[in-house]
Amino acid sequence: MTMAREFSYVRQEMLAAQPAPTSSGTALSWIKENLLATPKDVILTLIGVAVLIMVLPGTINWLFLDAAWVGADRAVCATIAQGGSQPDGWSGACWAFVESRLSQFIFGRYPVDERWRVILVGAMFVALLVPMLMPKAPRKGLNALLLFIVFPVVAFFLLHGGAFGLVEVETPLWGGLMVTLILSFVGIAVSLPLGILLALGRRSDMPVIKTICIIFIEVVRGVPLITVLFMANVMLPLFMPTGWTIDNFLRALIGVALFASAYMAEVVRGGLQAIPKGQYEGADSLGLSFWQKTRLIILPQAIKLVIPGIVNTFIGLFKDTSLVSIIGMFDLLGIVRLNFTDATWATPVTPLTGLIFAGFIFWIFCFGMSRYSAFMERHLDTGHKR
């Protein structure tokens, strides 16, 4: 009797056979599971559908059906829009403006006859970046050397010129998507290793190094990027010896890279603090030096833990490149806004169309980085095999 009471929670008979589970791979099953699972889900789904019905038709009309796609000036936008479904004469998006200025949005004021150099640099970048992003691609060391050491040097001589028979193109003529990608690439390539060193320095046992890293991180994180760019553009030349000058674009590159490094350092430091103490002790028990322990055991685990934070910093850096327009450099957003003053395309819908185009380009790159981050998280998730 006592034994029966002690094991009363144990089932005394076998469960009856259950029906086979329904397929969860169909669209109907997905809708039922994600949109109609509970009464609250049903209500929210109905509200969402109602909002889409109200907003989507007008949005599609404005973006596509009533839009002007080809034309030489703003007159085509008015002519086509007047025949649209909207009441005013400028109802549709003016994609003809984007089509007319697309090359300027990409290259800025870079000379037309020399734009093959930009295209060549872009092709080299893609050819080196794609294998670097593929986990199973061979020769990663050589690929990294070419991408982060050789490629920047070759790209500089190709884009700037002045050597090897190439016409010199001053950086004030650079602009558009080209400037956005250059700032982002340099900022990402510099901020990650520098941020790792700053994070290690902040956790160092040496007081001088720790203090220097803390001061740098806290000072840079305590001011907005606009202030850093203004200081790099206006104040830095005041401290240079007489006759010395630094290119305006190079100042922006240094300011953006240092600013991103401070934020990257805190992201990496969070990963270092998440590593259990036993990992450090295990490395010490093997007789590894500090740098061996850090390179082989601590950093791989720490970086894997903070991949979302690292990519989030990269995305923020990519979007913050638009702030360089305040120091006279025109990135993608800056060059789009500059064209709003063009009398040939001065219409009420031109600014909105241009901003939608710029926003879509930014979204493509940011979404791509986000998806690659999710892929790498799954690829490196070795702790929980499914």
Rank of each mutant, 00 (worst) to 15 (best):
L380N: 11
T382K: 09
F105V: 04
E99C: 08
W69H: 05
I326A: 14
T227L: 15
P138C: 06
A96Y: 01
W69Q: 08
F151M: 14
G328L: 07
A81H: 03
S285H: 05
M14A: 15
G92P: 04
T59S: 05
L198G: 10
V118H: 05
R202Y: 06
F157S: 13
H384W: 03
H379D: 10
W95R: 14
G270E: 05
P276R: 14
M124N: 06
L142K: 04
Q12G: 05
M54Q: 08
Y263F: 12
A199K: 11
L65F: 02
A343T: 13
K385C: 01
P57L: 10
Q301F: 00
A257G: 06
D381E: 06
L183N: 06
L102Q: 07
V55R: 08
D331A: 11
V311Q: 00
G368S: 14
A189Y: 01
A155R: 07
F97G: 12
A257P: 01
F185G: 14
G201A: 15
S184Y: 12
I196W: 00
T45D: 00
T2A: 12
I327Y: 00
T341Q: 14
G187T: 13
V190H: 09
F259E: 01
I356E: 01
N143K: 06
W90I: 10
F185L: 15
A50C: 10
G165L: 09
P348Q: 11
V267F: 05
E114F: 03
D247T: 09
R74F: 00
D320Q: 12
S325A: 14
D73H: 07
L166T: 06
I196Q: 03
G175C: 09
V154I: 15
T59D: 01
V167E: 14
G334N: 10
I298W: 01
V186K: 12
L253M: 12
G222P: 04
N233D: 13
L194Y: 07
L181K: 08
G255M: 01
T38A: 14
C213S: 15
K136S: 13
Y280E: 12
G89N: 08
A27W: 04
E168F: 06
F375K: 12
L102Y: 02
M235H: 05
L133C: 14
S184M: 11
V55Y: 02
E281Y: 05
P135I: 07
I226S: 12
F375E: 03
E281W: 03
M134Q: 13
D381C: 07
I212S: 08
L52A: 14
V154N: 05
G201Q: 07
F105W: 04
S322Q: 10
